[in-house]
Amino acid sequence: MNTGLDDSEIIGKVLRGESQLYAELVKRYQNFVFTITLRYTTQREDAEEIAQDVFIKAYRNLADFRGESKFSTWLYTIVNTTCITFLRKKKLDIHSLDNEQVFEVADSVDSGFRANQIEQKSKVQMVNKAIQLLSADDAKVITLFYKGEQSLDEISKILGIDPNTVKVKLHRARARLKDKMQKHFAEEVKDVLN
């Protein structure tokens, strides 16, 4: 179902009682919301549960969206707070660069990559696997900037931090990603290029 309406038009109609149109907003943003939630938890079931919770919260508070920012920026703010609340409740470990688990994941991804080198010789897979090796914070900033179509100012609103801090975080995240690719996928990069 593609209504041809923009986000604010859909929101207006939903607020006037056409709640079925909300499905269009869910379809538009579900992949992005789900990807961000997956940065916090490796369990797809948990990520889907959080993503569902995000859309329910957004629906219930839709009247509070005043159109001062993009709907996506407002929605991603809910994603951020919901993920943090979920992790606090479940007491799950946020991926951290200092976390041993990350290095275990890194090793398994690395060996998996080598084992299936022929099948996985693609830039897309390499980048997405390297992203998995980053901390949730780094992966989130990169995803928001490159896939969420959010400016530094908008990311700062979503995360509730200063735009300059976002800029520094983004620089560092990209540097770490580059390091991860150098460390784990240097050979594959050469293969991709040849």
Binding site: Y22, V26, F32, K123, N128
Partner: peptide, 16 residues
């Protein structure tokens, strides 16, 4: 090259 993950096919239906 950055890809987005997709939730299950029933996701929208579940939310609605």
């Amino acid at each position: 090259s950055l890809e987005l993950d997709a939730p299950s096919l029933r996701f929208t239906k579940n939310v609605m």
